[in-house]
Design a protein around this nucleic acid. Sequence first.
RNA 1: GUGGCUGUGGCGCAGUUGGUUAGCGCGUCAGGUUGUGGCCCUGAAGGGCGAGGGUUCAAGUCCCUCCAGCCACCCCA
Length: 422
Amino acid sequence: MNAIQKIKGVADLFEPDSTAFTRLETVAREVFGRFGYAELRVPVLEKTELFARSIGEETDVVQKEMYTFPDRKGRLLTMRPEATAGIMRACIENKVFAEKPVVKLFSFGPMFRYERPQKGRMRQFHQLDAELLGPKEPEADAEVLLMLWTYLRELGLQKLCFELNSLGCARCRPGYRQALVDYFSGLAPAALCEDCRRRTNTNPLRVLDCKVPGCKAATAGAPLITDHLCPDCAAHFASLRAALDAQGVEYTLNPRLVRGLDYYVGTTFEITSSDIGSQTAVAGGGRYDGLVRDLGGPDVAGIGFAIGMERLAMLLPGVKPEAPDFFLALLDQGAAGAALALAQRLRGMGLRGDMDFTAGSPKSRLRAAGKSGARFCLLLGADELNRGTVQAKDLAGGGQTEVPLEDLTALAALFETPGSEA
RNA sequence: GUGGCUGUGGCGCAGUUGGUUAGCGCGUCAGGUUGUGGCCCUGAAGGGCGAGGGUUCAAGUCCCUCCAGCCACCCCA
């Protein structure tokens, strides 16, 4: 019988890959907690309509990347392709806005997008999300960005590029959009690639982000959103920049930074790395005032970001697994019960280690002990059992002592002495 | 969805123009005389060559389909 294999674009993460994810989560809980964020867990499955309404019917994500299927009663469900929509749904449904004017939440878990896998792009991938709901002041944007910045620094990541832009609001965007369309229609028909000619009508902002060389050249002189912001947006953006400057956060202004989800307005940002393949975005986010209202909730402002955990993990330096304290070697099967009891006592003292279940020769057991990387090999056989003792061999130094099994203090003392490095 | 490359024991690889029982390194396990590791030596286990068809007297080696991986486009975290 053929063994069943995993489906395309998903991953099994064993040690030490799994430890990188654990680290990302641990540091996130710590840092985000310091900023007052509470953890939220939301379902992976939602009604398809939630994503269609929030992300945008015309986006690539909704058009061709969602895992959507009818359940047994014919309801259309979707495996979430991003987290914000579900978090907003949960907030509205649980009326969290009625309790407090400012809501800070973070969440992480798997997301699903039906795409062709490649480096840094999985069909099941994981995101770390943070959302700040309520305040619309630029200092709120600044705090969110500072939190992301702090998180990345505490992970020890230096070589990241921080890009910032403002997409404008419902008041300034139509004018800018028209300016763009006018500019594009003034170009030679062949100046833009086929996709971009279509985008000129559907999503002219996206043309600015096209990587085709011809398009890059053709849009070099295109009008920039930052020159078309309304007074409110311009002031907001200026205040945000001032706040970031004051905090020493280094960033690059990228007037061509366009996000792929329709709900973004105003401040947008992206953290990129050139070390993780052609998918460069490690984290991205922005302001989404109006999203909660559009999903049937009150008109509260919001800003947040998502971090791609797989991509971030690629940048993390390798972590060495913690070495065990002991390896309990069994020399005679008759001592198995005593070995289990001893191991349990040691673990009760907070020590880490493995024990043999099957007895073997001293040579084979010591070999195994050496490979385990343990500091001590404890040997227990018929002789020791008769004497009521256990042999403790220092695997780095080589010294060996015999300790009475019942002598807790002597056992504890063994592990308290500084280990000899060899 | 498109394109290129790839798929041989746990891991990394070699396998001549298709031809006897598919090799190597690492790893795993055991042994190198009395209950003691890490180096060294010896031996053993473990694959029928991603899956399924086809061509042939004969296929890991040729053809087809599918699956998976990698990289890129696209898109995004």
